[in-house]
Design a protein around this nucleic acid. Structure first.
Lengths: 210, 210
DNA sequence: ATTATCTATAGATCTATAGATAATGC
DNA sequence: ATTATCTATAGATCTATAGATAATGC
């Protein structure tokens, strides 16, 4: 044994890295604490000096996985490049992403898990909002609609990856990625005005509660 | 006790109904066999006279949930009505659907679970294909692209429902459904030719293996 | 006689805690 | 003295099986 506070911080980070990866791959319920600690080079007993409960790990790992997935994506989509949406789709809707859930987008891998796990909801929300802002910035259109449109693009992309992973037939799986790419591209291509027709502007300053 | 073969068939159906609903709500790992049997009005011990293993239940419940979700949707989208895509979006992208995972679309609720559960993959695949054919039939465009385009529409819809469920903020959640609706409508609205530009035709009869 | 279901239980998890060990850090 | 980690274990699951019970169905 023999461990400094610095060692502990490194252990904590290692546990989070392992959990963020394993949860994306197997789900929150798909891996136990003993297996996680083992993969982090530790034993189960020490877990509760790092987290007060399994739920706390789930919450921290949710944020960690979202950040992790964003870093992976942003490395492939430079902030000042041209045609950013095309680059995003090129990076996201790939067989590589589909076949590596553990290192990929946490929205695609963990949205359903988060919806069943109250401990993860707040962190999922925050991560999704940031992601939607980023993607919204790549789109044309009125400034106040960009976040919502960015969110819709994420829904289409994440849904495609999740379904492409679930499907048994490799050809069908590849086709899902390609068809979703075309759907998203077409959705951004139509003449402005045509899609805004049906849209009513929400009055500013009258925040509607639900 | 005292049970006929007819009783057994009814029991089997009840177990499947309960499982299809509970799995959509809580995931394959989110509910145990004892709780399922209890909700079906039976006890755990009888389970293995109906299924050889938990995995077999998962497989049958996957199909059952897909069928169930299709019936629910098709009730709301008459086969010969006008503007079928609009009706589909009206039925699918709603707060009601979002708030009732147990009775809703199994693609949205269980794609990620299926991707982690080999026993469910084949049944998910078959269900998705049928669903994509149905939705494809609602779209304009070349006949040989309809299934793929239908699949992409499902990805966007299912992704939106899954993410709208995961998100913490009710306003954001509602906005996700609305923005995805617009994205899908716009994707079908663009002038044909613009989107087909980049598309290469696959030679018929040369089936590419992966 | 067969069988649909029940009660009871074995054996394998899994989370959380208790107490020991061997360093760190005041 | 404090603490980061370890070994060991309690108590609560969960799947699967064994054997009993009370009907069905030939």
């Amino acid at each position: 044994m023999g461990h400094s506070q610095q060692d502990k911080a490194a252990s904590h980070e290692r546990i989070l890295d392992v959990a963020a990866r394993q949860f994306r791959k197997r789900g929150f319920d798909g891996v136990g604490l003993a297996a996680l600690m083992d993969k982090a080079g530790l034993t189960l007993g020490g877990f509760y000096k790092h987290f007060t409960s399994r739920d706390q790990l789930v919450a921290e790992a949710m944020s960690h996985a979202l950040k992790n997935g964003r870093v992976w994506l942003q490395d492939k989509v430079p902030p000042d490049g041209s045609a950013p949406l095309g680059r995003l789709l090129n990076a996201y809707l790939t067989p590589e992403h589909r076949d590596n859930a553990g290192n990929g987008c946490a929205v695609a891998a963990l949205a359903v898990d988060a919806s069943r796990t109250p401990a993860a909801s707040a962190d999922f929300n925050a991560g999704f909002r940031g992601f939607a802002d980023w993607v919204g910035g790549m789109l044309d259109g009125p400034e106040d609609e960009k976040r919502a449109r960015g969110g819709a693009v994420i829904c289409a992309m994440a849904g495609a990856i999740a379904i492409a992973r679930a499907v048994d037939d490799p050809r069908l799986s590849d086709d899902i990625l390609k068809a979703t790419r075309r759907l998203i591209e077409n959705s951004q291509k139509h003449k402005p005005g045509a899609g805004a027709r049906r849209r009513r502007r929400r009055p500013v300053g009258r925040a509607a509660k639900r």
